[in-house]
Simulated scan of single mutants.
Amino acid sequence: MNIKNIHIGSLIKSKVEEHQISMERISRFFESTEEEVEQMYHANSMDTDMLLKWSKLLRFDFFRFYTGHLILYAPQSRIDNVFRQKENTLIFRKNIYTQEVKDFILDKIKTGTMSANDVVERYKIPKTTLYKWMKKI
């Protein structure tokens, strides 16, 4: 799985095959022809309503791939982690790392593609968080 370049159609097709869902059931669910479903498998991106339907049908959150992409390739700066409301109350936002993101990062370290310090610098993941992940493997 490539978190940087997401091809949502192939990810959906993979899940369909994993769950062994028939084309007939999918066609009925989407009220589409087999050709239209096949076109979705080849789609690099798709409408969020359609992606939500796929998520419901396959009982899998396909949006998590995009969340992972945002965490890795558009990380929030430390200043952006604090928001001010009208009453000067501080609200802290904590990044949520999906299992896919953790696996992606840990694979980079395991294969020697990146060091732990490289990961911390490039993706702005706190050292303590990274080392906790590494401890669990």
Rank of each mutant, 00 (worst) to 15 (best):
E24Q: 10
E38G: 04
A43Y: 13
D107K: 12
Q99P: 07
N95L: 11
R122E: 13
V16N: 05
V37C: 01
F62V: 08
F65L: 05
R28P: 01
M1Y: 06
F30M: 05
Q20H: 15
K56P: 00
H69F: 13
Q39T: 11
E24L: 11
R28A: 14
I12F: 02
K110F: 08
F65H: 14
L70F: 06
G9C: 02
Y66K: 01
Y41P: 07
V120Y: 02
V37H: 00
S45A: 11
M40N: 07
I125C: 02
L58H: 09
L57F: 04
T48C: 10
T89G: 04
I6D: 01
M46F: 09
K86W: 03
A43H: 11
V101T: 15
K56D: 06
Q99G: 02
D80I: 08
F62G: 07
F83R: 11
T113H: 06
M46Q: 12
N5T: 03
I12N: 00
L57Y: 06
E36A: 15
R28E: 14
V119R: 02
H69M: 01
K94M: 15
N117Q: 13
N95T: 15
K124W: 00
K135H: 14
Q20S: 13
F60I: 08
E35K: 09
M1F: 08
K132A: 10
D107M: 10
Y41W: 05
Q76P: 02
I137F: 01
F62N: 07
K135Q: 14
L72W: 03
M1C: 03
S10M: 05
T129A: 01
L70D: 14
H19W: 00
D103N: 15
W133N: 09
R25T: 09
L90K: 15
R84T: 12
I21H: 08
W133R: 01
D103H: 12
V101W: 08
A74K: 12
N95M: 09
I3M: 04
M40C: 06
I12R: 01
F83G: 07
I71M: 06
V101F: 05
R59Y: 10
K132F: 00
L72Q: 03
